[in-house]
Nucleic acid binder design. Structure first.
Lengths: 118, 118
DNA sequence: GGATGGAGTAAAGAAGTTGTAAAACCGCCG
DNA sequence: CGGCGGTTTTACAACTTCTTTACTCCATCC
C-alpha cells in the first residue's frame, strides 16, 4: 500500500540538478548517490514534492501521512522533517523550508534537461 | 502498480559482472563458478531477477512462488531469501535488498558489454 | 530586552520485522 | 524401513522504524 497512488499530482518522477526521485520504484538520489528512506520519511517527502512550491500546513501533513486528526499535538512530524533534511544533505535546508507557525514547503531546484538522463 | 512496466518481461538470460543466469537451461554462475539451487530457490531468484529494480511485496512472492493466499503468516520466504543470499555470496546482500515491511528488490549489477560477444 | 511559545535534533525507549541456525517435517527411492 | 534432500517451522538475536522526551535555539510580540 506504500506505493499506491493517493495524491493530487501523480507525476512519475521529480528531477532537478541535485535531487531525483523515481516515484515508480521509490528510488531517491542526491547528487546521483542513492539515499534510502523509511516509509514514513518517503511518504512525507513525496507529499512535499508533489506539492512543490506550496505551503503545506502541519495539520495537513499529519492527516495525510499519519492519519492523525487535527487535534493531536506531537513532535513526530518535526523529527521526521529533521531526518529528511539530514538525508537530503547538504541541500536539506534549501529544499525543505519552514513556514513559521504554519508548516513547510518544498522549494524545488532548477529543472534539469531531461536529455541528460543516463 | 509495482508491476506496471520496466522489467516485467522474461528475458532468456541475466548477466552482469558477477552473476549470470541462463534461464533457458537453469544455470546460474557467480563469478563464473556454477551455483546450484533447489527448485523453490530458483523460482524465487527468477522472480526477483525478472523484476530487477522493482520492489516486490512479500505477498506477491508468496503467491507466485508458493501459491499461498495473502493471509498466511510464515517465515519460509525469509529463510529462502537467506539461502539465496548465501549462495550468491559474497554479493548476496548487494543483490537482494530488503524493503522494510514490504518485501524485497533485486538490485542488478553493472551490465556487461554484450556487444563484443556478438 | 525579556517573555512566550514554536521548531531543530540527539538520544532513549517501545514495538515490530528480519536474519538465520537448527530442528522438525515430508515425500521419494533403494 | 531408513536414509536423503528439500522445505517449513521454531526460536532467538539483531536490527529498523517510529515515537517520545528533553533540551536548545529561534521568532515574534510587548
Amino acid at each position: 500500500m506504500t506505493f499506491t497512488q493517493t495524491n493530487t499530482n501523480p507525476v512519475p518522477e521529480y528531477r532537478d540538478e541535485h535531487l531525483s526521485i523515481d516515484f515508480e520504484n521509490g528510488v531517491v538520489k542526491v547528487d546521483s548517490a542513492t539515499a534510502t528512506f523509511t516509509r514514513k520519511q518517503y511518504e512525507l517527502l513525496r507529499m512535499l514534492v508533489e506539492h512543490a512550491g506550496q505551503v503545506i500546513p502541519r495539520e495537513t501533513l499529519l492527516q495525510n501521512v499519519w492519519g492523525y486528526s487535527t487535534e493531536i499535538r506531537t513532535r513526530t512530524l518535526d523529527v521526521h522533517l529533521s531526518h529528511l533534511r539530514k538525508k537530503l544533505a547538504p541541500y536539506g535546508d534549501r529544499y525543505i523550508e519552514r513556514v513559521f507557525r504554519v508548516g513547510c514547503r518544498f522549494q524545488p531546484g532548477r529543472e534539469v534537461a531531461r536529455s541528460a538522463v543516463q
